[in-house]
Design a protein around this nucleic acid. Structure first.
Lengths: 146, 146
DNA sequence: TATAATCAAGACTAGATTAGTCCTATATAC
DNA sequence: GTATATAGGACTAATCTAGTCTTGATTATA
């Protein structure tokens, strides 16, 4: 449907939560409450993030999750692809020859260009950038409420 | 899944087929054979395109479909949205206030920007452009086969 | 070392979407 | 009147979405 799923959305929220205090281990309960994500569902997503290597986990009491790299070195695209798998705006982009019509299809090049531009945006935003933006936005939101 | 469905893909193929001879009425059988789309499935998609107004239909013998506007005035985005519905890369973009976290979410703006850039690409390609590209590509493919 | 906390892995589910197929009714050219 | 087409809708199998729940392994700490 050309739309990000909840997996991607929740994954980004979780990583942003970790990015706000990168060295601390946060557990599912904390992330779930702070980021408004169902706990049992978040658990699956965190496992995926851990398997991808973006996040490391620690079991047992005082366990939880922390980033494996500084937030500055994690892009939005990496997080999304870690939980959703690689992005292909059209199946014809999965690999050369995936679509037998490639040689004659005039739309293929447009999708390639569209995907390139999407990646430009998603690659250019790091978790550090976004976490900083989040702090600013939260402050503004609080200010306007006062 | 952040991916175009077959509906969109087939819809574009069909409209491009009509664009190659915009005034002629082509029937399902012709489009289906030429564009490699299952006939019964294509029928549903053509009805959707007709309802959207992009294409007009004529029933009965010698009936079929033709474009309602010159190919130069139909964009790729229009065709895709006619069959798939409006594009929203993330649910938070559907409308202001759709996501209760908008005021504090730092990712919202990134999705808005990403969608804007995607639209730039999809809005800039008309069916005339693409049909022309298709003719060129077909000629090249034929040449390289010879 | 017993216990409580916490992640890991996977089974399970209801509902929606995807990618079709098929049938009946209606309209039109000849 | 008949053959040809679209219109509309019912139907389906397979997959995806967005969860929930259970069991098992690991770890800090009293």
């Amino acid at each position: 449907m050309l739309q990000l799923t909840k997996d991607g959305e929740y994954g980004v929220r979780a990583v942003l939560h970790l990015a706000s205090d990168p060295m601390r281990f946060s557990d599912i309960k904390e992330i779930s409450a702070a980021q408004d994500v169902p706990g049992n569902y978040l658990a699956k997503i965190m496992q995926q993030l851990a398997r991808s290597g973006l996040v490391r986990s620690r079991r047992g009491a005082k366990g939880g999750y922390a980033l494996s790299r500084p937030p500055r070195r994690i892009t939005l695209r990496e997080v999304i692809e870690a939980v959703e798998g690689p992005i292909f705006l059209n199946v014809c982009l999965i690999r050369k020859g995936e679509c037998p019509r490639d040689a004659i299809c005039p739309v293929h090049d447009v999708w390639r260009e569209a995907q390139r531009r999407l990646f430009e945006v998603l690659d250019s935003r790091t978790m550090e950038d976004l976490a900083g933006e989040g702090v600013k936005k939260a402050a503004r939101a609080k200010g306007s409420r006062a």
